[in-house]
Computed example of a mutant assay.
Amino acid sequence: MKPSPIDWRARLEACGFEGAQHVPPTYAAHVLWSWREPLAAEAALREHLEQQPDDKDSLKMLISLLQETGRTSEVAPLRRHLHARRCQDLRIPEAARDAVIAYLEAAETGSTPPERTAEAYVAALFDVYAPSFDDSLRGFLAYRAPERLMDAVRTVLGGRRELDVLDLGCGTGLAGPLLRPFARRLEGIDLSTGMLDKARERGVYDALRAGEITAELASSTACHDLIVAVDVLVYFGALEALLEHVARRLAPGGLFAFTVEKGTEPGYRLQPTARYVHHLDYLRGCASAAGLRPVLEREDTLRKQAGQPVVGYVVVLTRSGPTEARPVNGGPI
Rank of each mutant, 00 (worst) to 15 (best):
P3D: 14
W8T: 11
A10H: 14
R11A: 15
E13R: 15
G16I: 11
G16P: 06
A28I: 04
S34E: 12
E37V: 10
L45W: 06
L49I: 11
Q52W: 12
K56Q: 10
D57S: 11
S58M: 11
S58P: 08
I63W: 02
Q67W: 01
Q67L: 14
E68L: 04
E68S: 12
G70Q: 08
S73G: 09
E74N: 07
E74G: 00
E74L: 14
P77D: 12
L78A: 14
R79M: 13
R80Q: 05
A84D: 02
C87S: 03
C87T: 04
Q88E: 12
E105G: 04
A106W: 08
S111E: 12
T112K: 03
T112C: 02
P113V: 01
E115P: 10
A118M: 01
A118Q: 03
A120T: 05
V122I: 14
A130C: 13
P131C: 10
D135M: 05
R138Q: 08
R138L: 09
R138K: 13
G139H: 02
L141F: 10
A145G: 00
L149F: 05
G158K: 08
R160L: 14
R161A: 05
R161F: 09
L174Q: 00
L179G: 00
R180D: 01
R180V: 03
R180T: 00
R180A: 07
A183H: 05
A183I: 07
A183M: 07
R185P: 07
G188T: 02
I189R: 02
D190F: 04
D190L: 02
L191C: 10
S192I: 05
Y205E: 01
G211Y: 04
I213A: 11
A218R: 07
S219H: 04
A229P: 04
V230W: 00
D231F: 00
A238H: 04
A241F: 01
H245E: 08
A257E: 15
P266V: 09
R269I: 01
P272F: 02
D281Y: 08
C286V: 10
A289V: 03
A289N: 02
A290T: 06
L292A: 13
P294W: 07
V295Q: 11
L296S: 06
E297N: 13
V311W: 07
G312S: 09
T318D: 06
A325P: 13
R326M: 09
G330L: 08
